[in-house]
Structures are given as structure tokens and as C-alpha cells.
Design a protein around this nucleic acid. Structure first.
Lengths: 199, 199
DNA sequence: GGAGGGGTTGCGGATAACCACAATTGTTCA
DNA sequence: TGAACAATTGTGGTTATCCGCAACCCCTCC
């Protein structure tokens, strides 16, 4: 999904104005006339930001925001509000809205905020790649290897591990080597970091 | 520190009103007439919440808030603002203010918010005990030991470390032993876990 | 029945970690 | 100036890790 400014407002004049405004500043955008219409197109990998009118016919902007939050959306949201309602603004920001702008808004300022939101979104990391890598590698381990690994991470000596598992030290060494190989590390320290760095 | 509502406002009438209001609702409070006065008494283990006027003579409420943030204060802050300024409210909340209330405020509502803030503060966990322990122990390390530790955590052999630091392997061994001793661990693996578990 | 994978073990050697004992240098602080 | 501490090094020995080579057992799947 390429990053665009998603506009949701039931006022056609505003939609057009925003569309034109964004285009003039080379920000790609697309507009929807209602929360419902936007939801129909929504998927969780939209990128960019969402410019959302607070007050709309049908589902309100706040309701849409809550719904998206429940669905795990992390798209930054900039609220547009027509009436200086501080409690509303505070509530929205506390719930994680990226920004809250009063209408009538200053064009340049709004675009700046939109761009800031889009940059924020762009800098947003995919779910920790490290964790994914670690998880994938963990799955390659056999059950027995996992048992050994636990004990390696507990800082135990091979001898102790062998004792606990009632196997020869040599066997532990073999497991150990295969664990390191599969996990792509070359020492127990690295292993510990790989696994505890992302908890 | 027992939890109290800390009031900072340069308007004596407001201070008195709030003090009376809180007392009537069995919320302990104490008031200061300026940010500077509050700062003089501030320490990082104040508990409860801070009710803070945005606009004051001398240091403003926002400035005080920023300063406290820098100092690592985690006391929840409820801003009082006399003029419905949405950008200000949004900025404050985005920076981590707990709430933002317009003057004139509804007494009951304000107290409810204060109580909510104080409950939030009470439920706030002490800084991760592990992190505290690790940090405290880290401080016991000499600079040289820290250098060695970095390299141990990189999974390097004593020989390599000795080489990098241009010292004898034996010296590295000594440092290593002292690091383990001071950090209260008995292996590099434990060390890695202690330090990466809380990052 | 043979191939493959997982788990197991032994032997022997190279390399590294760990440790007790002992000692030197430089700096800081009382 | 002497105590205390950080940093340094050496000797010699014990213990662990790490690995290649070789092998056996058990189970599954084709």
C-alpha cells in the first residue's frame, strides 16, 4: 500500500477542498463521504494517515476511530473538528489520535500536520523483524534441542545439563552446536540477546 | 510520599477554592503559588497528581510540565486552562499530560478527574525492579570494566578483547570476574539476560 | 527393506575459560 | 605519607567448551 492521506468527511466541499489542497502540495489522497464507506475499503495495511471529521452523519469520526483501534489499525489519525470542543480533543488525543485540528483550519498548517503524520507512519516499524526471525528459527528446533536451549539460557554448564537430562555430555555438546547453527548465532551470549532483546 | 493532589496556580482564589474542594471530597492536597515554588519542593517520589494552571506569571505551567518530564517525573498532570485553546490542549496531552480541564470547571468533574489521576498514579508500578538493580550494579562498574563488559556482551573471546584493548588476557579475565561479581551473575548468559531483559 | 531424521554416545585433541597466588604501577584521599 | 582502589601482568593448573570422526538405536515414510 503506497502512503496516501485518507480523507473521511461527509461535507463534499471539505472533501474537494482537501483533495485540491493535498494535490497542490504533492500529497496523494483519496476521499470517502462517510465512515461506512471508508470501512468498506479499509484493510489493515493502509499507509499514510487518516484525516477524519469528528462530526458526521451516520457513524461519527470518533466511533470510526474507536473501531479502527479495536481492529488494530495503526494509521495515524488527524481529527477535524468544527466546534472548539476541548474535552473532545483531549479525549481523542488520549486515545491515541495523532492530532486534532479545528475548522476553519489554516491550509499550510494542516498539510504540515498531515505530512508529519505520514512521516510518522512511514517510520513506524513493521512488527519487530528480530522477533519474527527468532520465532521462525525457534520453530526449526527439535523438542530435545529446545530443552537443552532452555538450560543453556539458564547459564548451566553442559555437564549440568547432561546430568539433568540424563544424557552424556557429548550429546549436549552436539545439541548445543546444532542449536547455535539453527539459530544463527555463535555463542550463548548472542542467543540470549536474540531471545531476550525482543520480549 | 503519601499521595496528595499538588496544586500549582498563581491565583490565590483558585488555590483556596481547590484546596477547599478537595478537602470536602477527602482528597489531601497542598498548594503552591508558582512553578518555581513547587520546584523547590519537588522530588521525584511525589505521589498523587499535579493540578497545574497553564498560564502563570513566571514559569508557565507548560514549562513546568516540560521541566518535570525532563527530570523523569511520572506524576500525572491535570492542566487547568482559562481560555479554550485546543492546540494547547492537544499539545499538552500529546506530551503526556493526564488531562486538560477548562476553567471555569465543574467541581465534581474536576475532582473525579483528579481522583482518576491519583488512582492511575497509585497503580503505576515502581520502575522495573530489575532495571533498577541492573542500573545500580552498572554504576558500580569502573569505566574499564564497562569497556570489557561491552565486548563480553558482543560474545567476544577474552583473547580478542585483550587484543582490542591492548592488554593481557589475564587482565581481561580479572575484569570479567569482577564484572560478574559486581553484577551478581555467574555467567555471560545471565549478564546478557539481566541487561537485555529491560531495554 | 532402505533412506532419512532425531537422539544418542565415545575418543581425543585444540582452545578458551576460570582461578588461586603473587606482584607492580599510578591515583586519590585522608 | 600511607591506605585504598583501579588497572595491570605473570605462573601454573583445573575445568569447560568446541569439534571432527565414527558409530548405534529407533522410528517413519516411500
Amino acid at each position: 500500500m503506497s502512503p496516501i492521506a485518507h480523507i473521511v468527511d461527509d461535507d463534499e466541499a471539505i472533501r474537494d477542498a482537501l483533495t485540491w489542497l493535498f494535490r497542490s502540495r504533492h500529497v496523494d489522497s483519496r476521499a470517502w463521504p462517510s465512515a461506512e464507506a471508508f470501512l468498506a475499503d479499509w484493510c489493515d495495511d493502509l499507509r499514510g494517515c487518516l484525516v477524519l471529521d469528528v462530526r458526521m452523519g451516520g457513524m461519527s469520526g470518533l466511533q470510526l476511530f474507536d473501531l479502527l483501534s479495536e481492529r488494530g489499525s495503526r494509521l495515524p489519525v488527524i481529527f477535524l473538528s468544527g466546534h472548539g470542543d476541548i474535552p473532545l480533543a483531549v479525549a481523542a488525543v488520549k486515545k491515541g489520535a495523532f492530532d486534532f485540528v479545528e475548522k476553519p483550519f489554516n491550509d499550510n498548517e494542516l498539510v504540515d500536520r498531515v505530512i508529519r503524520a505520514m512521516k510518522f507512519d512511514a517510520s513506524r516499524k513493521e512488527p519487530d523483524p528480530n522477533a519474527a526471525v527468532a520465532a521462525a528459527r525457534l520453530n526449526q528446533l527439535t523438542p530435545r534441542e529446545r530443552e537443552v536451549m532452555e538450560r543453556i539460557l539458564a547459564g548451566k554448564y553442559n555437564k549440568v545439563i547432561a546430568d539433568e537430562l540424563n544424557i552424556a555430555m557429548r550429546t549436549v555438546e552436539v545439541h548445543r552446536a546444532r542449536i547455535f547453527e539453527k539459530m544463527g548465532v555463535k555463542s550463548a551470549v548472542e542467543l540470549a540477546q536474540l531471545l531476550s532483546g525482543n520480549r
